[in-house]
């Protein structure tokens, strides 16, 4: 099939839509519509982490976030003809992710937040490290609970995925000032909640 794209040179996430070296979303969407596997794979590669972050913001569970993100990509492919502005595929995809995550939460309205065990890692840490990682992750997950959904989305997309304010604003359909504001308050809330942990890490780092 013509037009197969070589994606090796791409950054996995945080690629600017207007980046000269990157193929624009609109082109990938057009090819994915025609069943181009590489183009669809490129979109997955580009937005899987962001989709996961948005899903996590809603579900607050790693396992659920993974399932939702995976499912959202399949739904997006099935409905890709409905993506009226392919250049804004990311925002459209994030809406699907958010809606599916909310549906999941609705379906499982009575559920207990649990810590998901480590996924199959090739180089697993020793049990003590693993326990510590689980504990820290639990603290962080609890801290994330104090944020609003949109604050979680913004802080994860910015601080974890490396998206710029402008990109978040464009893709989540929010004013850039609102994005900055959400980010500021989210960080402040996280620092406050995680203060004991951060202080200890800071002292450990100074030793």
């Amino acid at each position: 099939m013509p037009g197969i794209v070589e994606f090796n040179a791409w950054k996995p996430s945080g690629v600017l839509m207007d980046e000269p070296s990157g193929i624009e979303d609109a082109e990938l969407v057009r090819r994915a519509r025609d069943g181009d596997r590489a183009a669809f794979g490129g979109l997955v590669e580009r937005y899987s982490r962001a989709a996961y972050s948005v899903a996590f913001s809603v579900t607050r569970s790693r396992e659920d976030a993974e399932d939702v993100a995976q499912e959202a990509f399949l739904v997006a492919l099935q409905r890709i003809d409905e993506c009226r502005r392919p250049s804004r595929f990311a925002g459209w995809l994030m809406t699907i992710v958010r809606n599916r995550a909310k549906n999941l939460i609705r379906r499982e309205s009575i559920r207990v937040m649990d810590i998901v065990p480590e996924t199959a890692a090739t180089d697993r840490p020793n049990p003590r490290e693993q326990t510590e990682t689980v504990r820290l992750r639990k603290l962080l997950t609890d801290a994330m609970e104090t944020l609003s959904e949109v604050q979680r989305e913004v802080v994860l997309l910015h601080d974890l995925e490396g998206w710029k304010h402008r990109e978040i604003a464009e893709r989540l359909d929010l004013p850039e000032g609102t994005v900055r504001s959400h980010l500021h308050f989210a960080r402040k809330a996280l620092r406050t909640t995680l203060a004991p942990l951060l202080d200890r890490e800071s002292k450990d780092g100074n030793r």
Partner: peptide, 29 residues
């Protein structure tokens, strides 16, 4: 101070995670 958000990233502790994720999605699709 730095907030260790990478703890929430499944790929942080498992370098092949996102590659496998992509493979699964593309295979299912």
């Amino acid at each position: 101070p730095r907030i260790p958000l990478e703890l929430l990233d499944p790929g942080a502790s498992d370098p092949g995670y996102w590659s496998r994720f992509r493979g699964r999605v593309v295979m299912d699709a």
